[in-house]
Design a protein around this nucleic acid. Sequence first.
DNA 1: TTTGAAATTGAGACTCTGTATAAATTATTG
DNA 2: CAATAATTTATACAGAGTCTCAATTTCAAA
Lengths: 155, 155
Amino acid sequence: MRATHQDLYLRAFSDYLRKKGKNLTQERISIFKTVLSKKSHFEADSIIYELRMGEDRVSRATVYRTMKIMEEMGMIQAMHDLHQHTHYEPKFLRRHHDHLICEECGKVIEFRNDEIENLQEVICEQKKFYPSHHIMQIYGLCHECHGANHNKRRL
Amino acid sequence: MRATHQDLYLRAFSDYLRKKGKNLTQERISIFKTVLSKKSHFEADSIIYELRMGEDRVSRATVYRTMKIMEEMGMIQAMHDLHQHTHYEPKFLRRHHDHLICEECGKVIEFRNDEIENLQEVICEQKKFYPSHHIMQIYGLCHECHGANHNKRRL
DNA sequence: TTTGAAATTGAGACTCTGTATAAATTATTG
DNA sequence: CAATAATTTATACAGAGTCTCAATTTCAAA
Ligand SMILES: [Mn+2]
Ligand SMILES: [Mn+2]
Ligand SMILES: [Zn+2]
Ligand SMILES: [Zn+2]
């Protein structure tokens, strides 16, 4: 039987915890697996909710604590939307990218631009700054919402 | 007697309000002036606190409402720090720029790169997106904190 | 395997931003 | 000077996230 992706990531998680002198508890495993199942943006709430539905009951505080560990570890990344709500994004299996966010409908369009990524590194060198990660979000209107607003104004 | 900057901006504020069918109230003037006095990043709390200390007493709700108007108007811009705390930044008198944020000491280093700004526009065109503004924050360690950590590890 | 120290968890109280409500105040208009 | 509309205030409320500390679990030494 072959090791699954989940097994491999769980191993990495376990190693990380040991390295930090932390224990691999049942609760941490449950939370880790649930987070691992996310293919795209998600919120802390959805993790808490899913766990509550399943058989593994885990408290809210533990979910937040474990997600903080996963963030330190670099498996997920937190980002804040327009309305002080924290969103997370899985970083395993996904290439880094940035976001266009529609202020009307909330749609999130992903993009990646290597030229910008390179320029960011140049800037950090100039400023003697040692980057760990970055967030770039362009706000505005998506094609559909821009069209809709346009039509509305004509009426 | 010459018109001060404050007078000019207050005029712009007054015009904006009129255009929107809103009244220029004493409370809005107080809040506007306090915000105008900010030369760099600030939080809603500090505005509320300063007003509470001064003679013009204004309620929390009114401060939030007025700051929302100022944001719509483009005089300030909201941004979120690492810990879902909203920070504002004055946009009058200041040119747009982005941020390097030290995760150790919280220092904020400002920068501006026209190449990146142009590339952002190109991306929006490609994606048929109509941008209103953007936020770009690079997290990591500033020169001092990186040096400090380095030394610490050596001990 | 047992055992005890240390780490972790869970329940719920609490904090902090920010928003909603509805009565009281203020501004505008005729 | 009314009548009307907009605004403000106080206060209650909501939601995300943190804190506390007693109870439980983990781990590793014996
Ligand atoms: Mn994304
Ligand atoms: Mn700035
Ligand atoms: Zn849209
Ligand atoms: Zn620093």
